[in-house]
């Protein structure tokens, strides 16, 4: 990897200041994507700003009808936190399906959604549960956060502080994983909460997207058979050596039905 300046700020304002000063700074959380990307020289930051010591980004807590997950919370911490397991088991199950134990011990929710990998799992949770992303400057609705392939609504030097998940009445995440990497070939989060039914799909398109036809049908009757008649178009879906666009379209319906069964 190319050389860089390593910085380890002690507070959120200091981290933002260091990023603002840097010629081309990048924030480092768990590094599970960033470090391999740097090793491949696909990215070469001038400054790497390590968020490890930022207390503002840590911890999981319940606030009213929401679970707030700090940006540097690891997948393993999400899996093992009793409040998440009790109140949002779909999120704990999603986190447990990411990568492998060593990746879950380091990888973070903030890093995952900031990276916005089209096959990552957390985007399905952020959109499928109607979460809100809190940054150092504002709050961003989950629906507005992911804007394209590896693209988000974050501004330069803007830092994710936490993700707030409203607790749904029911929810489940089902994915068809790539057997080697455990990334989603297709993953579907289905939830029913105060603002209705959400169906969010990851792995299938350039970024996470909702399926309004499925949401409307499930709002009337939350049962897998209502999805039977809905056709998912393969247009603009991803196509690679793992799965064709048509196969991904098929998997969206299969995973959505399984998620509805699991959530019922």
């Amino acid at each position: 990897m190319y050389q860089f300046v390593y910085q380890r700020p002690g507070s959120l304002p200091e981290a933002v200041e260091q990023s603002t000063q840097a010629r081309e700074g990048l924030f480092l959380a768990g590094g599970m994507t960033l470090i391999p990307t740097m090793k491949l020289r696909l990215t070469a930051p001038s400054n790497l700003i390590d968020l490890t010591d930022l207390a503002e980004l840590k911890g999981i807590r319940q606030e009213g009808n929401a679970i707030i997950v700090g940006a540097t919370t690891t997948h393993a911490q999400v899996v093992s936190t009793p409040e998440v397991r009790d109140l949002l088991p779909a999120l704990a199950a999603l986190a447990e399906s990411i990568g492998d134990p060593q990746v879950r011990n380091r990888g973070t929710i903030g890093g995952s959604i900031a990276n916005a990998d089209p096959a990552a799992d957390y985007p399905a949770a952020v959109v499928g549960l109607g979460a809100i992303v809190k940054t150092n400057t504002r709050t961003i609705a989950g629906d507005d956060f992911f804007t394209g392939l590896f693209e988000t609504a974050l501004d330069p030097n803007e830092l994710i502080v936490a993700v707030s998940f409203p607790i749904p009445q029911r929810a489940a995440y089902m994915k068809f994983p790539n057997p080697a990497s455990r990334y989603a070939i297709v993953g579907v989060m289905v939830s029913q909460g105060n603002d209705g039914v959400r169906v969010a799909v990851t792995g299938a398109g350039p970024n996470v997207f909702r399926v309004p036809e499925m949401e409307q049908a499930l709002a009337v009757n939350f049962a897998p058979e209502v999805l039977e008649e809905i056709t998912v178009s393969a247009d603009e879906l991803n196509e690679d050596l793992h799965a064709s666009a048509d196969y991904r379209a098929h998997l969206i319906k299969v995973m959505a039905k399984r998620a509805v069964v699991a959530a019922t």
């Binding site: 391999p36 134990p101 060593q102 011990n105 990497s181």
Partner: peptide, 24 residues
């Protein structure tokens, strides 16, 4: 970070030491 031949413990948790900077 796929094969796990480099797994060590950092503060009691297993991690892949090929995907961690020493400074971290």
């Amino acid at each position: 970070s796929q094969c796990g031949a480099c797994v060590v413990h950092v503060n009691g948790c297993s991690v892949k030491s090929c995907t961690l900077l020493a400074v971290q």
